[in-house]
Design a protein around this nucleic acid. Structure first.
Lengths: 225, 225
DNA sequence: CAAAAATAATAGTTTTACTATCATAGTATA
DNA sequence: TATACTATGATAGTAAAACTATTATTTTTG
């Protein structure tokens, strides 16, 4: 992204991990290879035992970083949204025109992910695929309320609220800025998924990205076209 | 719903089950109690063994109806969308004005579920909660493409396409009728979920339903207000 | 009433998702 | 340089999940 950002670290709630995976080589290996493995075999089939075998490490060592694979998924999605948030703040901070700001924000949130060499143990493109396919499993659980109280989803919530504030700045009379913000976030992932697996349920495709659909929808909804 | 419909049966792809659960008392018990149990303990903790214990039946007997709990979930969500589709067709069939028709359709798809005595072994209110919290797990899998080819999701797809057709009838110049239709379906579930678990991520609440948010969004997007 | 079909009971397998204990290698510090 | 601390690895073990297989019993129905 920028050389200036070489020292940036995405900061994640300590309750999500037992030991900070950024603090050691093994920790980074756990993160980088879990991303590749979840993408390859899916979250359901993914286990710490398989991951251990792949990175030449021990199952029990992985358990010293994350309590279970659910928390690892929460960690990965939090990292992803922290990374997107960083790009969003960086790109929109200097824009004063509310419409321009919102447009830029939507572009950042919805555009196809490109690799970012700032964080070299994380493949953002593959992580983006995991977020599309697996991230909703991190909150569609029986434990969601407790985990939400513990702050597991704070980065995601902050992202939605940033978008919501930008929407309200554009149209202060609109009654549903937060719902529209959460819909942009979720619909973007959903349209990406549909384009890859249910092409008859979307008008999006490789040359007609979800980004354009959502920007159009937001512009119309907020009376600007 | 109506006495006329007493003989109606929601028809579901035979590949989803091994033996039609509508064909026996045990089958109906499996369906009705699995709905209650998944709602109660969540899909992850739900097992055929626990269900067997609850209905005083044997684990192995349940396996003669459904290969595994994943297929049972596909069955339940298909049934739900088949039921919604039925109500949708029934309610919109006689409406000739395109806008009126679309509005009615959105109302049916998004409104809070009420119990329907037509199908007395299924509690539609509880099933609705399962669809909100668990249904995306039925397609966010590694097997989705194969299962889609086998027709596991045909009812859901038909629903989205009915909505899409109605959207196109209202505004034939709009470029994203199918994406808007799938977004209505998904955003409705998502907003319902947020209102119950992440109130800071939505403007919806008990007296401000997702239905109103979505209808407003669709009207604006299709230039009608 | 007999045959067929459905269900129940029992047992067994493999894998998952852990927990516990002990060994060892590397690093820091006195 | 000894030692102590920490991280990781190796091994073992458990309970439950997710099945499969076989046999017994009950229920249905022709």
């Amino acid at each position: 992204m920028d050389q200036l950002l070489n020292s940036v670290k995405i900061s994640i709630n300590h309750k999500i991990y037992l030991k900070d995976p950024e603090s050691s080589g093994l920790g980074k290996k756990i993160v980088s290879h879990s991303i590749l493995m979840i993408d390859e075999i899916g979250f359901e089939a993914f286990t710490f035992k398989k991951l251990g075998a792949k990175i030449g490490s021990n199952e029990s060592s992985i358990y010293r970083y994350f309590e279970n694979k659910h928390k690892l998924l929460v960690y990965l999605t939090s990292w992803y949204w922290g990374w997107v948030e960083y790009k969003l703040v960086f790109a929109t901070n200097s824009i004063s025109n509310p419409w321009e700001k919102l447009e830029k924000a939507i572009e950042i949130v919805t555009k196809t992910i490109e690799e970012d060499s700032t964080f070299n143990h994380i493949n953002e493109v593959v992580l983006g695929r995991i977020v599309i396919k697996e991230s909703s499993k991190s909150y569609l659980t029986k434990e969601v309320d407790g985990e939400n109280k513990s702050g597991y989803f704070e980065i995601y919530k902050r992202m939605v609220n940033r978008l919501s504030t930008m929407i309200a700045a554009v149209d202060s009379n609109y009654s549903y800025p937060t719902s529209l913000a959460s819909t942009i976030m979720e619909a973007n992932l959903h349209q990406h998924f549909l384009k890859d697996h249910f092409p008859t349920l979307t008008n999006c495709s490789e040359n007609k990205q979800p980004s354009a659909f959502l920007l159009n929808m937001v512009k119309k909804t907020l009376n600007n076209d």
